[in-house]
Write a protein that binds this DNA or RNA. Structure first.
Lengths: 155, 155
DNA sequence: TATTGTTATACTCTATAACTATA
DNA sequence: TATAGTTATAGAGTATAACAATA
């Protein structure tokens, strides 16, 4: 049996009488699946998508990338190596501190980043297109609140 | 459906600062984080947690496990190898078809599965404990609806 | 021939520890 | 000494292709 795509994801039957934890977990898997569908099309992993996202508005050093992605710096070395091999990012040496290596999107990387962001937004929009405007507003507001509380709790 | 105008979108997200796709993505990361906190405590990966979940009420063959997890059967061989090495699952040969290898939780695996499930439920409950009962009900209902539509769309 | 699993191989992703270069 | 990054190494997780055993 061949897996048709790069991602592995769960697809279990949804229900009506779900507990809130179950509903949350399944919603999370659905969202993850939507993101991975886009990533797969461009042969990107989730981490690579996140890397592109981090570089979208910044030109951080390797250490800062590691902090953003919550990875060890040695993991970022390989991650950037692979992205560089694909021509998506470029390493440049900082003039002010010759120890730091800045990472930046190439023109091709920038193009791909914009495209992927737009496609993910589209997939997520499709995911909620069956909801009424009222429910969409509710979901947005409640989800925002949950995220907010969680973020404050963890700094 | 027409693409909403820029101003309409601003109206839709007024008061929250997040678009619905953003809110969904961030909520998904928060949920994933909650699950991973539990998994980490028990030195489990997300896939291993899912494997335990699949085996909770079943004793499937390797092929069926692969289908449940949406993995290639060769990937499941290694996955089950590692779980078996840790004493969490056991391979047994089926009597009716000597090709198939059934996978079952050991006593220790069953214990861990119950504990992990309970802890994940607890983490997710904590995630939403700041919501009013009304908002919790809304979130549960709306999330269930999204998951339901998504599941039906993908069969 | 078809199905179920495993093996061989290769790649991504991740971490820890040791190393280099710069500050 | 301390910091930024890479290298060496190990292991999990994934896939494809080739194989063995059974149906």
């Amino acid at each position: 049996m061949a897996k048709p795509s790069r991602s592995a994801r769960r697809r279990e039957t949804a229900g009506v009488g779900l507990t809130l934890p179950d509903a949350l977990a399944q919603l999370s898997f659905a969202v993850h699946g939507a993101i991975m569908r886009v990533a797969d099309v461009h042969d990107l992993s989730l981490v690579q998508v996140r890397l592109l996202g981090v570089l979208r508005d910044r030109e951080p050093g390797m250490f800062a990338v590691a902090a953003h992605l919550n990875l060890d710096k040695s993991s970022v070395t390989g991650l950037v190596d692979r992205a560089e091999r694909r021509g998506l990012v470029r390493r440049t040496t900082a003039l002010e501190d010759r120890r730091t290596v800045r990472v930046a999107l190439t023109a091709r990387g920038r193009l791909l980043t914009r495209r992927v962001a737009k496609e993910i937004e589209g997939e997520l929009a499709r995911l909620v297109e069956g909801l009424s405007a009222t429910h969409r507003r509710s979901l947005s507001r409640i989800a925002g609140h949950v995220v907010d509380v969680d973020a404050r709790r963890r700094g």
